[in-house]
Amino acid sequence: MGARFWLAPLLAALVALTHAAGPSADSFAENDVKAAFLYNFVHFVRWPDTVAHKPGDPFRYCVLDETLAPLLTKALAGESVDGHPLMTVRQPELRNVHECQILFLGEQASLGGLSQTELLRRIASQPILTVGDQPGFTARGGMIALVKKRGRIHPVINTDATDRTELKISAKLLNLATLTRDGKGNAQ
């Protein structure tokens, strides 16, 4: 009789233990890691004061990538920095792109019929942190490429591109990244 009282919870605990596999500790989806990097950038990049809009105005992550957009929306939900809620803008218009603080460009993504290189050139002096995930992104004038390197997501930063704007990248991010310049070809 008494034994059964003990047995039931014990069995249940064993079932729970064997079936409840948590998030795999050593393997994360590439896009989840990219979304987490993007989320972090707001803390390790400084935008010029002119961008500081009224309190309560959103901080815009414009995303031209169908896979990453929903993940980023999830990552930014409920988050804010200095009173500015972080929000995702999917498929912004070219005429509104100056309202973006961060612009993520997927592989083929561009705006208003421009090539990625043309788009990046057009907004080159604006305080918009341009991020991509193709190795050639920095060579096209993009600022940060999140590339896969030896099984990890690694940031590559074109300091010529960031130095053309008033954006300031923190030492932490710069030291973590591989630095490259214009005309250096594909980032390693």
Binding site: F28, A29, E30, A36, N40, I153, L176
Partner: peptide, 14 residues
């Protein structure tokens, strides 16, 4: 992932 620091993120195998 959001709880991780930048260097931890960069060290993750994907």
């Amino acid at each position: 992932l959001k709880q991780m620091s930048l260097d931890e993120l960069a060290d993750l195998r994907v």
